[in-house]
Every structure is written in C-alpha cells, then in structure tokens.
Write a protein that binds this DNA or RNA. Structure first.
Lengths: 231, 231
DNA sequence: GTCTATACCAGGATAGAC
DNA sequence: GTCTATCCTGGTATAGAC
C-alpha cells in the first residue's frame, strides 16, 4: 500500500518546468527552428512562452499583439520570427508541447498500480498537482483550444478525451471488481474531469478562499469515494 | 411536495428567448440606441446577437471582425453602429443582458421553497435547463469574461459568485437543519457549480454520448445527495 | 542571432448619400 | 434607418544592416 503522494514530494520527483518543456521542443524541432545553439534557443523559448502565456491568460491569445509579446519577452519582432513562422504556429507549438508533457507524467505516475481505489486517488492527485505546477499552461490550453487550426484542434480534443478515459477505465475496472458500486461511469468520469479542471480554471477563487491544492485533493477524493462506495 | 420539474414544463413556464432578452435590452437603453421603432430595433438586435454568439463561440470574440458580423447578421457596418458605439460595448451589452435574465429566472424559480433538499434539486434543474435553452450565451459568457473592460469584468465575477452563493446557502441551511451531513459546503458548492458549468462547456461531448439534460440532471442530483446524506 | 525599419493589409470606426 | 465609400490605426510579417 502506497502512502499518499503529497505536493512537495511530487515536485521533487517529477521534473516539470518551462525549461524542460522548451528543451524538449528545441530538440524535437531542430530543423524548423533557425537558432542552432541549444543554450540560446532554450533561454529565449522560455522567455517567449512565459510572456505568451502571461499575456494570453490576461486578454486572450488573439488579442495579444506580437509587438506586445516582443516587449514582454525582451526580444525584437525579428528575433521572435526566428523561433516560429507565424503567430498560429506559436499557438500550436505551445499546445502540442504541453500535451506531450502532461501525458508523459500522468501515465508514468499511475502505471503499475493495480488497486482501482488507490490508482484513482493517485490519478487525481497527479492531475491536480500537475495543473498546480503548470497552471498557466493548463488555463491557456483550455481557453485557446477552439482557436487552433483544424488538425491541432482535433488533437486537442482527442487528448482531452484520452485523459478522461484514463479515469473512466479506472472506474470501470473498480466496478468490475465490485469495489465501486454500479453507476454510470462515463458520467462519473466526466464529472471528475470537470472538477479537476475547475482547480486551474478558477484558481483566483480558491486562492481567495485559501484552499490549498492538498485540501482540494482531499475533498475531491472524499466526494468521489463516497459516491462510489458500495451501499 | 413538488413534483420534479421536467425540461418540457420548464420551457413552457419560463419565458426565455433571444427576443425577450433583446426587447428588455431595447427598453432599458432607449437613450443610447439610435433606433426608435421597437419592432425594427428588436428584430435587428436579435440578428446581431445571434450572429455574434455564433461567430464568437467558433473562434472567439476578439477574432471576430465586424465585417464578418455584418455579413452574418445581414446588416451593413453602418447599421451595426447604430446599435452600439464600439465592439467592446457590444460585448458588454451581451454579457450584462444575459446576466440579468439568468438571475431573474433562477431566483424566481426557487423562491418560497423551504425544504433544503427540494430547493437544492430545483436550483440544479433550473440552472441546467436554463443553460440548455441559452447554451450559446452561457458558453460565450464563460469564455469571454476575461476580455471585458475592468468594471464589467468585476460585475461578471460578482455574478458568478452570487449564483454559487445561492447553492452554498441552500447547502448550509440543510446542514443546520441536520438534513445534510457536515462537510465543507464552500467546496461542495464550488464543485456543484463546476459540474453545472461542464454541461454547457462540453456540450459536444454529452451530445456525442447521447446524454440528455434530464439524464445529466438526475446524475448530478444523485451524486450530490449521496455525498450529503447523513451517514 | 538580433535589431531596426518598413511593407502591406485587415481591422474598427465614421461621414454623408439615399 | 440603412448603405457605401473611405479613413487611419495597428496588426503580422519580412528585408537587410549589424
């Protein structure tokens, strides 16, 4: 039986940062990025991504002008365009890279757990902690999905359904093993997903009420377990 | 003891439509709207609002050009500007008018109910049914809140907290009367709100899975009642 | 690799004819 | 009340100097 994963431990064992994300991006797109030195490229990509998320989450990606982005990132317009070919491509890059990172961490942290109850809890904790560390990315991703080009839009929807399916599969497994009572697990999974998303979509609200991520996690686990307990 | 409000009945007894909303808007802003004939004004406002919601929900309000809006609404650019002074004002108008309508209906439909359990159910049903009828407005409102000017933005946040508080108050009342078990009602209210919002934010998902609003409502009531049942 | 200067176009907004 | 024609700002994108 594994102990509860707490937030501090999560941060220590899981390597997630803007820098990692940008390094992955650089290594995976060497051809299309005109800058060749890794140190320089990663440093600037971090500045660009940070600035883009910060401005976009304030006023929306399409309302962000590249002049603004250039000022906030501390790079000239010309320099920006050595990292991406168009504003739309920048949007795609941010979304794609974030999705990859999330999938990797989430799957990684729950694999090998057999007990559905423990696995469910672990998945909830990892999802919440991830969205706590990468809040600006999660918020951005949610809000800007509909502005993506068709192909990327489709992939974003698939990713959303895929993570939801991870939860639904755990729930169904638990039901088969008579650990959870028989309810509509598709709806339960959707509801769970909605509450997980609320954590990063309404961060201002929870911050104002001084709700920590661990308190929210405990509440969520309690709620879902109470609902699923055999009666 | 009241019977469950079903969706069909709701549609019959509650008068909500774009036209009503636009008539209210016209009557409340006679001075600032340059058109004087009610019939003409309301007809065109409906066309403008419908077009604006449809385009914005596809690609975002700030990405919608007024030329596009003018084409979709079937009015010239010049005509558009007799109904609002600027694109930003249009955004404010839509948001403000929708908020008023929702408050009116929601408060109206739950007032006078004493039993917390029945009142909670009624509030959930009314919220879901309202967002079903006005889905495009709810989606728009959620997605575009952050693009509002400072003052309207503040009001939108207040409205969000106000409706949440309606739920939290019912929950706390039930707890005081020992009908619900003692849990953190602020968190329960927030979670409930998140699931209510998911209904209009992820409509495509529920439509694809053929989940009706009444099925979703029943699920939500079951989930929250199970959680709150005294143990 | 990065900057400045500039091209070019689309956007919001309005004047004035009908 | 509505339309057409036009203004002008500010947007994305790039060329070419350093």
């Amino acid at each position: 039986m594994v102990d509860n994963l707490d937030f501090k431990t999560f941060r220590r064992i899981v390597d997630v940062s803007m820098e990692d994300m940008c390094r992955d991006l650089f290594l995976g797109n060497r051809e299309s990025i005109r800058i060749k030195k890794e140190r320089v490229a990663v440093k600037n990509l971090v500045k660009i991504f940070d600035a883009a998320l910060s401005i976009s989450n304030e006023k929306g990606f399409s309302a962000m002008s590249l002049r603004e982005l250039s000022a906030e990132a501390g790079l000239s317009m010309g320099a920006l365009y050595t990292y991406f070919k168009s504003k739309d491509e920048l949007l795609d890059m941010i979304q794609r890279q974030g999705r990859m990172l999330i999938m990797r961490v989430l799957l990684n942290q729950i694999e090998g757990i057999e007990d559905p109850k423990i696995k469910l809890k672990q998945a909830i904790l990892v999802h919440l902690y991830l969205s706590e560390v990468m809040q600006s990315w999660f918020y951005f991703s949610y809000m800007e999905t509909k502005n993506l080009a068709k192909d990327e839009h489709r992939k974003a929807i698939e990713a959303e359904l895929f993570t939801e399916k991870i939860f639904i599969d755990i729930l169904k497994d638990g039901q088969k093993k008579d650990i959870f009572r028989p309810v509509d697990m598709e709806l339960a999974g959707a509801a769970l997903k909605a509450m997980l998303q609320d954590w990063y979509l309404k961060r201002w609200k929870y911050a104002r009420r001084k709700v920590t991520v661990e308190k929210y996690a405990a509440f969520l686990v309690d709620l879902i377990e109470t609902y699923l307990n055999p009666s």
